[in-house]
Design a protein around this nucleic acid. Structure first.
Lengths: 118, 118, 118, 118
DNA sequence: GTGGTCTAGACCACC
DNA sequence: GTGGTCTAGACCACA
């Protein structure tokens, strides 16, 4: 897999993004067990400490929980996942609208473009 | 002024983007005279050659033309500007739709979110 | 080697011409690897940046492509090369006809001269 | 008039070319009186000495003769003019054929192009 | 080692 | 003063 890190953001933040995306898109379903930090780090080609930091962040946000010995799991709380999905989507929408506004498009113009595209 | 260059793209490309945005958004209206290469370079905090390269690219795309001694001007051909605006907008739209798809949203879901947002 | 640059055209344009000629005439066959920018620059007695600029122009025209670390190559797309050859030839033909016209030759006169020449 | 001097050749040579062209094309008919050196120089925007040198060259080639007091005239010897016309035309033809040969065109290819052009 | 980018600074033609 | 070209030399990512 190409993790394609950009260099405009700390790597751990990009890891958070990617894993978050996996969770909200369902690629990592609720309750799924994550691979070990060591394995995930190797897979992504990053230092285990970096991956650790990403996972802690996800834990803080309630998307992931850890059980001392059994490992880390995606939360079973579907609402949390749904909320996160909505938050991310709104973020996308917001920056999209902002970019279009800078281009001189208002809501109507965007709709016109959408129709033209179909 | 902080031009906030990212490091995921050559500076000259980002300059192209910025100026292009100024043109299609109307901040730099058709026929407007641009500041001299040297002045624009100083303003952006880059080397004149870098700014020159950006402007040459814009010239190649027909958004700008230069007159030997008088300076550089935004094209008066409104169609070229409109086309570029549409191209940029479609690009924005496309990556937006792609990102939303990765989040698990289909067209309906996006529309629902749009309405919710109003 | 004397590359005999004229001073009625930028050096980089003359470099473009020369290399283009090499490609369309088959001296640089499709898929051939070009020497490195630095080597070509040294060979031509110009600054590497100047040669780089020429090569970028050729890339823009699709006659050449570059691979990150492996070097630059003549396009394998024979059609592109053939088209360029035709374009150059038509240019030559056009200026020839123009010059002959200025000399007072019409099409018939040119043909007569051609036959006389054989 | 734009005399459009290139800088790959001495100006006087370019003056010779231009005037020669005027004579063989008939713009300056046999026996025509040329303007004074001073006037021709002014018209072309060059130093009178430069124009003088050009006219001397034309005299040497027999295309022009001077009568001490009356001024300079185009030769009345039509044959000289015709020969010069042919010489210039052959020169044009030769460099055209040479350029086409460098492009990889043989006589047949040139003829094919000519037909395609009609 | 490759291509690519960027800076610094020079010189030129044009008007 | 303007745009345009050229050189010299640095640094970077890639593999």
């Amino acid at each position: 897999m190409d993790w394609g890190f950009r260099n405009d953001l700390p790597i751990y933040s990009q890891l958070v993004e990617k894993i978050k995306l996996g969770i909200v898109s369902g690629a990592l379903p609720p309750g799924a067990r994550l691979a070990s930090v060591r394995d995930m780090a190797m897979e992504a080609g990053v230092n285990p400490n970096t991956m650790q930091r990403a996972l802690q962040e996800l834990e803080r946000e309630g998307l992931v929980y850890s059980q001392r010995t059994a490992g880390r799991f995606v939360t079973e709380d579907v609402k949390v996942i749904e909320d996160m999905k909505k938050t991310l989507a709104k973020g996308q929408l917001e920056s999209f609208l902002q970019a279009m506004k800078e281009l001189g498009y208002d809501r109507e113009g965007i709709i016109a473009l959408l129709k033209e595209d179909e």
